[in-house]
Design a protein around this nucleic acid. Structure first.
Lengths: 350, 350
DNA sequence: ATGAAAGCGCTAACAG
DNA sequence: CTGTTAGCGCTTTCAT
């Protein structure tokens, strides 16, 4: 074997800076500088070190680095679920912004359970992240205490109906519900049903519903029928629920769905049953899933600005991290995005 | 204010074990023992410590803990994308298994770019995770080197057409493509088209296509037309591509789609255009998305066992971590799952 | 059952 | 430009 081209030797124990130092004949400190592109190092030394590190297959130990520097390039992201497309889209927004920094998102999932949220948060904060992005404004007392003392920027996302701990980015779900109710009532629908998820802990869905009923009340209307589901495919459930409601309350002339998946399912039901939409019955969902564009009829919906929310939240963390403003001296940023109504083909123009 | 119920004082600097030690009058070491449920500590001391920790709002510093113990409860998960439902489902499988351990998944996304995969991997390995789960068997040389030397269990998932570095869990995409081709040819279709994503780096899609064409060839057939797309909503793209192909090659009697979203789009196109499916033309997708169940017609598809793959991979990591078998003395586990064909309503029974 | 001492692998701060 | 010296906050190990 050619001695001038030594093969990397698979290490038994993880390599340390010291190994690279010895292999390159340069002090640990200088190796550290080269590897982090910090300070002035001569081109010659730099190359020697890089060559040695590469040949050995050295991967720095961020744990030690983080402990020594008390800097951690992790951003904790706490979301309730992966299952519908809404949070993946928020994550994509976060990722697209953080990709151009050296920050890295770390995701924790709570399944809409406050006690899990507490645990996930505790776990993540114990890694001393550079920032926290958490869905929603409602937290247990313990979670709120942890967030207040996190010692890093905290951005609560999705919702702006409440007081943030630090910063918040989102839409007003009450307003979203209200806007939809006004559009529906304004278009002349009178016998309105609601289909949603069986989730007392989905505060945003609850707020939309509250805004919805409040605005209906103002128009002298109330929800004529409602149906809730848990688990399973949204699309299929939407079909079932729609069938159920139309049978139970035949004179319904509108159904407001708490998300686009069940809304699209309801629309499919009407299409296959030959029910005239939006004449005989109008339909609307929530989220503005891209998917809707492909259906024969476009469901009325409302854009929740998911990607933008992720981007804005990540930007807040990135900026505060860059400026070293850990405590949020500025008093925290508040960004309310505008949910945009899309009438589509399932809500009569008023 | 009641002096017996002192309020937690928001700390300027993160609290340390020492703070809890001083507040409780117990040595740091004992505090550490209590907080980790390790060793014997008297009930009285335990309570004092717990009370102090809670009152102060102490959150342990895992960075220091990990450095001292060289134990990290993180599992690195490297996936190409969040955008379709396939990887979120894998993540749910992983999560469901790790939730009952003290391991925590950390997700990195590569966007199907080898150079990003390398960077993400380097970044994650530098946190010395307890295990790595990475999608696919194809890696750059550098990535392969890092994985080989990771010093922890490495599970390559989704695909089994190749040699794993350590363990692998997945299906054979070549075989999946072959099975579908056999079903299609067996049902009597002869003018077969293919619609897929413009992704030379999606090796699994490529392997399915290879298996597909190989099996067609064996039946004396070849792909009559093909169409590729990039980006955008799958559903909408599926419609467009289908329209395009049917115009260009009117005698097509089957289209095989590389995923269910575009397949469902194609099906919607046929439904709205009144094209007889599966008589005039047959359709099939891939993934067995739950969503398909809600459409008026069920698309023929193949289950890629996404959730099961996630679960099995997580189980391998969890077991190896529990048994301390970091190096994979057992030689690595190989699990090939069986993709299940679902004919649905869009592929004639043979 | 509890404590004291010695690092884990790296980086900040300072010295040359 | 490069090296030296102290820790970072915790856990391991060994006393007591």
């Amino acid at each position: 074997m050619n001695q001038d081209a030594p093969k990397p030797i698979p290490p038994r124990r993880p390599l340390t800076l010291r190994d690279v130092s010895e292999a390159s004949g340069v002090s640990e400190m200088t190796v550290s500088r080269v590897l982090r592109n910090r300070g002035d190092v001569s081109q010659a030394t730099r190359e020697r070190v890089l060559a040695a590190a590469k040949r050995l297959g050295y991967v720095p130990n961020k744990i030690a680095g983080a402990l020594a520097s008390s800097r951690v390039n992790l951003v904790a992201v706490v979301i309730p679920s992966f299952s519908n497309m809404v949070f993946p889209e928020v994550l994509m927004g976060i990722g697209s912004v953080l990709d151009s920094t050296d920050l890295q998102p770390v995701v924790g999932v709570t399944h809409y359970k406050p006690e899990r949220a507490e645990k996930v948060l505790y776990e993540m904060l114990s890694w001393r992240p550079s920032g926290v992005i958490v869905a929603g404004l409602e937290h247990t007392e313990a979670a709120r205490a942890m967030l207040s003392n996190a010692g890093c920027p905290v951005v609560e996302i999705m919702d702006v109906d409440g007081e943030p701990i630090d910063s918040m980015v989102g839409i007003s779900h009450r307003r979203a519900g209200r806007m939809m109710a006004e559009a529906i009532a304004g278009a002349g629908y009178r016998n309105i049903g609601f289909a949603g998820t069986k989730m007392p802990l989905d505060h945003r869905a609850r707020k939309r519903f509250e805004g919805f009923t409040a605005a209906l009340a103002k128009a002298g209307l109330e929800v004529r029928d409602r149906e809730f589901y848990a688990g399973g495919s949204g699309l299929a459930k939407g079909r079932e629920m729609t069938a159920t409601m139309l049978e139970r309350t035949p004179d319904l002339d509108f159904i407001y769905y708490s998300n686009d998946m069940i809304g699209a399912g309801g629309m499919l039901h009407c299409l296959t049953e030959g029910i005239d939409v939006p004449g005989r019955i109008g339909l609307a969902g929530f989220n503005a899933l891209e998917m809707l564009a492909a259906f024969p009829k476009k469901l009325a919906t409302m854009d929740a600005c998911r990607r933008e929310i992720g981007e804005a939240a990540a930007r807040i963390i990135a900026e505060r991290t860059a400026s070293g403003d850990l405590a949020g001296e500025g008093g925290g940023t508040r960004i309310e995005l505008e949910p945009v109504l899309a009438l589509g083909d399932t809500l009569k123009r008023s």
